[in-house]
Amino acid sequence: MEPTDLRIALFSGNYNYVRDGANQALNRLVGYLLKRGAKVRIYSPVVDSPAFPATGEMVDVPSFSIPTRKEYRVPSRFEGRPREDLEAFAPNVIHVASPDIVAHRAVTWARAHGVPVVASVHTRFETYMQYYRLQWLEPVIRAILRRFYHRCDAIVAPAESTAAILRAQRMARDISLWTRGVDRDQFNPERRSMEWRRARGIGDDDLLIVFLGRVVMEKGLDIFAAAMGELGRRGVEHKVLVIGEGPARTAFARDLPDAIFTGQLTGDDLAQAVASGDVLLNPSVTEAFGNVTLEAMACGLPVVAASASGTTNLVRHGETGMLVPPKDVAAYADALEAYARDPELRARHGAAGLDYARTMDWDRINDAVLQVYLRVVGKRKRS
Rank of each mutant, 00 (worst) to 15 (best):
P75S: 08
P139G: 12
F187G: 04
H317S: 09
D153P: 05
S161P: 04
G203L: 06
N366H: 15
A330E: 15
G353C: 06
E295H: 10
D361P: 01
K239F: 07
G378F: 05
D268Q: 14
L137N: 13
R105N: 10
P139M: 09
F78D: 00
G235K: 10
V182W: 03
P302C: 07
L29M: 12
L281P: 01
R382F: 08
Q272L: 10
L354R: 10
V93H: 09
R254S: 15
V279L: 01
R77F: 07
H113L: 03
D363P: 03
S120A: 12
L265R: 04
P302N: 10
R105E: 13
L26P: 06
M1C: 13
R7Q: 13
T286Y: 04
N14Y: 02
V369R: 06
S120P: 02
A253G: 13
R83Y: 02
M322P: 01
V242T: 06
D367F: 03
T293V: 15
R151K: 14
P343W: 10
R192W: 10
S76P: 03
P343F: 11
V303A: 14
P82Y: 02
L177H: 07
D328Y: 09
I365N: 06
V18Y: 05
Y15T: 02
A308F: 07
M194W: 13
Y373C: 08
N313K: 01
E79C: 08
G232A: 13
T286L: 04
V118C: 08
R249P: 08
G181D: 12
S276V: 09
A154Q: 00
A259Y: 02
A338S: 15
R358H: 12
L354G: 03
Y373N: 03
L314Y: 00
P139Y: 12
K219P: 05
F224R: 00
E245I: 01
A347I: 11
R81D: 14
S76H: 08
G321V: 01
M217W: 14
N14L: 04
G350I: 06
A298C: 10
D174G: 01
S49I: 13
N23W: 03
Q24W: 08
F261V: 00
R358Y: 05
V18Q: 07
V376D: 01
D85S: 13
P53Y: 06
D367N: 13
R124L: 15
A157Q: 02
R111P: 00
T4Y: 12
A273R: 05
F252A: 05
V304A: 10
R41I: 06
A333N: 06
N92S: 12
P189A: 09
A298W: 00
V61P: 01
G201I: 04
R380Q: 14
P116W: 00
G80R: 05
H104Q: 14
G56H: 07
Q186W: 11
R7F: 08
V242A: 11
K219H: 12
Y72F: 15
M58R: 14
Y339C: 03
L33W: 13
K379S: 12
D204T: 11
H104P: 01
Y131D: 14
A296Q: 04
G263M: 09
R142H: 12
A106R: 01
Y72C: 07
L207M: 11
N16F: 02
L166R: 00
G31D: 11
E2G: 11
P82R: 02
